[in-house]
């Protein structure tokens, strides 16, 4: 007899990356889901790069200054501003998701009626996503002022 695992292995109904990126299903929750993963992968790539960049310290002052020449440029600063924005969004939206996972801010279950809006996506959830986006914009503006402010 076929086990559940074997059934799953032979099933060919997985959408994979196509399903993940399918824009026809976008609601606020889906945009937030998608951004949380994109920002997470971006920040992980940045973190690995940052660890490598910092490791130039052990090769002495010349290696460190050579690395700075590569990263402390206008494009390097724009990249850092993106890092600031994505990390702020990822953190704020992540905190919202922790509350959501704990059932906080979801409201009571309701019967699904036409036009079948997701009951879980109430004003608390929507405002959480907006707060994440607004805080990211503010953090990026502050980051720009520090990086391009000529300090």
């Amino acid at each position: 007899m076929e086990t559940t695992r074997e059934k799953n292995d032979s099933r060919d109904n997985r959408e994979g990356l196509k399903g993940w990126l399918n824009p026809s299903r976008y609601g606020w929750e889906r945009i937030s889901y998608w951004l949380q993963r994109l920002t997470g992968v971006f920040l992980l790539v940045y973190f690995v790069g940052h660890i490598y960049e910092t490791s130039s310290l052990v090769r002495g002052e010349n290696a460190w200054n050579a690395m700075l020449e590569l990263t402390q440029t206008p494009w390097g600063h724009i990249f850092l501003i993106l890092v600031i924005g994505t990390s702020t969004f990822h953190s704020t939206n992540g905190i919202r998701l922790i509350f959501t996972h704990a059932g906080k801010g979801l409201g009571n279950p309701e019967r699904p009626d036409y036009p079948y809006h997701a009951m879980s996506l109430n004003y608390r959830q929507k405002s959480g996503i907006w707060v994440a986006l607004i805080l990211s914009a503010i953090a990026m503006l502050y980051g720009s002022s520090v990086l391009f402010g000529g300090e």
Partner: peptide, 20 residues
């Protein structure tokens, strides 16, 4: 950050495809 980041990547990769 290494634990959080790579576990996040693991979650994403498991969402994309599941088999042993």
């Amino acid at each position: 950050v290494a634990i959080h980041g790579f576990n996040g990547l693991r979650i994403i990769l498991l969402e994309l495809r599941q088999n042993k």
